[in-house]
């Protein structure tokens, strides 16, 4: 369950300019960035220490295509929730490695803000406030958990 106050977000992204622009979007969406990691090791240490509500994870990190394993570890061992942000959405495993969904790159600012606000509600209330906004695709397991059942998982 999410902490009270703004949603705490860990950014895992090896492109620093993307991460810098994303930081502003996170604040504008009413969330709070607790940290930024560029490699899977760094991300794992931060996820363990900072316990973010949500980790935004790119598939390709400084140490290679380690984002998928990282998301699985965050879900299984850290009790956290990961969300992929990648241009590689088609290559994700069917179970999304335990992550709650994916935002495809190139994303729009509006798309990211809508997705974060939507996930804020999902994580707080354990229920989706409706269908996900355009640009956000939910993992089947999380769509079920948030009460979307057999409904389409994209707008």
């Amino acid at each position: 369950m999410a902490s009270p106050g703004p949603l705490n977000i860990l950014v895992v992204e090896d492109e620093v300019l993307l991460a810098a622009a994303l930081a502003f979007l996170i604040e504008e969406a009413g969330c709070h960035e607790v940290g930024h990691a560029m490699s899977s090791d760094e991300a794992l240490a931060m996820a363990t220490e900072l316990r973010p509500d949500l980790a935004l994870v790119d598939v390709h990190l400084r140490d290679g295509p380690t984002g998928i394993d990282l998301a699985r570890t965050i879900a299984n061992d850290c009790g956290g929730v990961a969300l992929f942000m990648t241009a590689n959405a088609k290559r994700l495993p069917d179970d999304f490695a335990g992550a709650c969904g994916v935002i495809g790159k190139p994303y729009s600012e509006h798309g990211v803000k809508m997705a974060l606000r939507y996930l804020d509600v999902c994580l707080r209330e354990g229920r989706a406030p409706g269908l996900p906004p355009a640009g956000l695709q939910l993992a089947p397991a999380w769509a079920d958990r948030w009460g979307l059942g057999d409904l389409p998982r994209t707008a």
Partner: peptide, 24 residues
């Protein structure tokens, strides 16, 4: 093809991020 598509998408993201940061 997949690699090129991936690179184009990432570079577009990089360009919009740059413009965003500079505008701010």
């Amino acid at each position: 093809l997949h690699e090129v598509d991936h690179r184009v998408k990432n570079n577009l993201q990089l360009i919009t991020s740059l413009l965003r940061l500079q505008a701010r």
